[in-house]
Write a protein that binds this DNA or RNA. Structure first.
Length: 750
DNA sequence: AACTGTCGGGTTTTT
DNA sequence: CCCGACAGTT
């Protein structure tokens, strides 16, 4: 049972078993960081700590999921009760409990950055300001910066230095926008991403009883990727851990060399502050790299030594295989793409690599297109992460807006988005009129719609719309998420709108809508206990929205297909591949031109490059092009300074033979529909399947499950109506599953 | 109110 | 190049 400890090296084992008091683990790339974190949690549980008292914070849902899965391997089901998740998702959950104390409804809506930007744009318009000087993008990032330093709108406006700075920067109305933005969000019952942290901080700060509750609950706290936390996140952690009489049971894991989110307010200072805030701190440095060959590790070391700011450590490996690092120099971006894909083919043949062992990484998402073109041409299956995400697509946002309105009617932005989509004769002027009335009376647009509106022009259309939404709201009380979503999709006319257009583009949209519905179906059908006790287990649309609003593309279920991965270096953090292509290594691209004026900007880009190359296990290929299309214009590029920092590039930098005529790109192609969830392979054929009543499921019963196949019931717990069965499925990788019987589709066998 | 065409700006990076 | 915003027209 505890032989997992034997698989660790001495330092790792100490970092795992030293469970009392503050611990800092400085972990180089590939040094078994995730292992330490997960084994530490497993160890805590084995030492008798209740898993419900453990809080593990990560940056991505993916990391959280992986962590849970790995803990489960060691300690079994108890893993599901650990509070493991992203800062944003865990905090959102805590906020829903006590939102009332902050004047928010518990079913508050979460705005993604697009929602936030359009709200800002609308405020800028209301104020009669110029939308280029007050670009929503820029304003949002300034607001975000303020929030991550715990500066409220009022505090900002009251601070002369800030106000003066804005005057000099010719955006004197920034403070006013920030203020209105805050007010509008609150009226709408909505929070943006930063608010999930920001409001939680104030909840803990201003409500001692709440703070006390969570201090008592979370007796062991772990933080992954600590180098990427910002001041606000660290402040929250400190509130929970550092107090008179507290045990300071906190373990943070990070690597200053992999800090790549300074632009988002992350600060390495947190590591220094951590040492100061917790004097009893014990530090463990993991320096042995188990991931990569020596050539790759040495290249990484060469690169990072050019940074002045860093915690000194020596990363080493005993994998002395002699694969070199390959460099591809191309004349143009399309040639780069072609040669990269050629090289992928070669590696697949010569080294028997599978697609899934290969990744193409780039600095900006816009670079993915050409690679896609060639991969398609060569018939290599691939998958693009990031970029225009599924949930950002127009047709998806439209439907989600209908959904959101069913849950939270005060959300004006969504109402405005859908009130005249599909076209139903409610024009801009009318909408503007409604908005005026709402503002004048200090109520939401929905309130206006429900009241008796005077003889406005499109009155009939408005009344019809209101009635339709009222029906949806009424139905949301009885229907599950899928049935309601289906009803909305049909009756709102959104689906027909795209179906009747019948263009390539609209067909793709229809497919996306179907993918969304499939996803909801999957959510409704999923009967597995998905986490800890506090998670809502109903299948309403409201619950569905809560689960997806913090998801990104990277969280899509990965189909068991074999595909090459295309993603930005940022999203590749924490991943590893047998073969990695780091592309577009050109000045102004990687490092990005935007980093040039930022203090320490180049150092961050260099850390990013460091992250990129340390993703590779055995094969690393670096590539760049001499010219590249940007905004449809041909621009010339110089090789990245990072290439010059590598000794390998000096010895291997001879130009590879160039093929004439390969430098042409023409296939333009329209958007490929994004499949959100591939159909799961059902083990059981649904036709012969017949679900049995819940009462028949008892300990020792042999059952058939639609997704997991045959299994044996080991245990049934929980009161009537909320029973949970622990079932052992013999044909599943992770055989032991906890199934909620009220949703389960189980057939009793023999 | 709805449709059409022109123009201008956008590409860091993510929850 | 590729999209959304806006103005001008029906």
């Amino acid at each position: 049972m505890s032989d997992y400890l034997d698989s660790l090296n001495d330092i790792q084992r100490k970092a795992v078993t030293d469970i009392e008091g503050p611990v800092l683990v400085v972990a180089g790339p590939g040094s078994g960081k995730t292992r330490v974190l997960t084994y530490r949690i497993a160890y805590l549980i084995q030492q008798g700590v209740n898993p419900r008292n453990i809080l593990a914070l990560t940056f991505t849902n993916k990391a959280a999921r992986e962590m849970k899965a790995r803990i489960e391997k060691v300690v079994g089901n108890a893993a599901n009760q650990v509070w493991a998740g992203t800062f944003h998702s865990i905090f959102a959950r805590l906020l829903r409990v006590d939102a009332g104390l902050l004047g928010f409804p518990s079913n508050f809506t979460i705005y993604d950055s697009d929602d936030a930007k359009s709200l800002i744009a609308s405020i800028v318009k209301d104020l009669g300001l110029d939308k280029t000087t007050y670009a929503a993008n820029n304003i949002l990032s300034r607001i975000s910066t303020a929030k991550s330093q715990i500066i409220t709108a009022e505090a900002y406006a009251a601070n002369n230095a800030f106000v003066e700075q804005d005057r000099i920067s010719s955006i004197p109305f920034f403070a006013e926008i920030y203020k209105r933005y805050t007010i509008r969000l609150k009226k709408a019952g909505a929070m943006d991403f930063d608010d999930l942290l920001f409001h939680l901080f104030f909840l803990l700060k201003n409500h001692p009883e709440v703070l006390e509750k969570y201090r008592r609950k979370f007796t062991y706290i772990l933080v992954d990727e600590f180098q990427d936390t910002n001041y606000l996140q660290y402040s929250i952690i400190k509130k929970l851990v550092r107090y008179e009489g507290g045990k300071n049971n906190i373990c943070v894991v990070g690597d200053d060399a992999q800090s790549i989110y300074a632009f988002r307010g992350a600060t390495i200072e947190n590591i220094l502050d951590f040492e100061r805030d917790f004097p009893m701190l014990k530090t463990y440095k993991l320096e042995q790299n188990y991931r990569s060959t020596d050539a790759i590790v040495q290249a990484a070391n060469e690169i990072i030594q050019n940074n002045r700011k860093q915690i000194k450590k020596t990363i080493w490996t005993d994998r002395k295989e002699d694969q070199g690092i390959q460099v591809i120099r191309a004349l143009a971006d399309n040639e780069e793409a072609k040669r990269v894909v050629d090289s992928i083919l070669e590696q697949k043949n010569r080294n028997h690599l599978r697609n899934s062992e290969i990744a193409i990484l780039y600095r900006t998402n816009a670079q993915s297109r050409i690679f896609e073109e060639y991969l398609r041409r060569y018939n290599i299956t691939y998958r693009v992460y990031g970029g225009m995400s599924f949930y950002q697509r127009k047709e998806i946002k439209d439907l989600l807006s209908y959904f959101k309105i069913c849950v939270n009617q005060n959300e004006d932005e969504s109402i405005q988005r859908i009130i005249n989509f599909p076209r139903r004769g409610i024009g801009d002027a009318t909408i503007e009129g409604l908005r005026k009335i709402a503002i004048d009376n200090d109520v939401s647009i929905w309130n206006v719609l429900q009241s008796d509106i005077p003889q406005v022009k499109g009155k009939k259309a408005i009344v019809d719309f209101t009635k339709m939404i009222e029906v949806f709201i009424a139905k949301s009380k009885e229907l599950n998420a899928y049935d309601l979503a289906m009803m909305i999709t049909r009756q709102s006319g959104v689906l027909d709108e795209y179906k009747k257009e019948n263009s390539i583009d609209s067909m793709a949209r229809v497919e996306n809508i179907n993918a969304l519905l499939d996803g909801i179906k999957e959510f409704v059908d999923n009967d597995e206990v998905s986490g800890d006790d506090e998670l809502p287990t109903d299948k309403s649309l409201a619950t569905y929205l809560q689960t997806i609003m913090l998801l990104t593309d990277a969280d899509k279920e990965s189909p068991d297909n074999d595909f090459v991965t295309l993603m930005s270096v940022h999203s590749a953090k924490g991943l590893e591949f047998k073969s990695v292509f780091v592309t577009g290594l050109e000045e102004k691209l990687f490092p990005s031109w935007m980093s040039f004026e930022v203090p320490d900007g180049i150092e961050e880009e260099r850390r990013l490059f460091y992250v990129a190359i340390t993703r590779a296990e055995s094969f690393l290929t670096l590539s760049y092009a001499n010219s590249r299309y940007r905004f449809g214009k041909l621009t010339y590029c110089e090789p990245s300074r990072f290439l010059e920092e590598l000794s390998i590039t000096k010895s291997e930098l001879q130009a590879l033979p160039r093929e004439a005529g390969s430098a042409r790109s023409s296939i333009s192609g329209s958007f490929k529909p994004v499949k959100m969830l591939e159909k799961k392979n059902l083990i059981v054929d649904g036709v012969d399947f017949k679900a049995s009543p819940v009462e028949m499921i008892k300990e020792g019963t042999r059952v058939l499950h639609l997704k997991f196949g045959e299994g044996l019931v080991k245990k049934v717990e929980g009161g009537a109506g909320n029973k949970v069965a622990t079932i052992y499925f013999k044909n599943v990788d992770d055989p032991e599953r906890r199934i909620m019987l009220k949703f389960a589709k189980l057939q009793v066998l023999g």
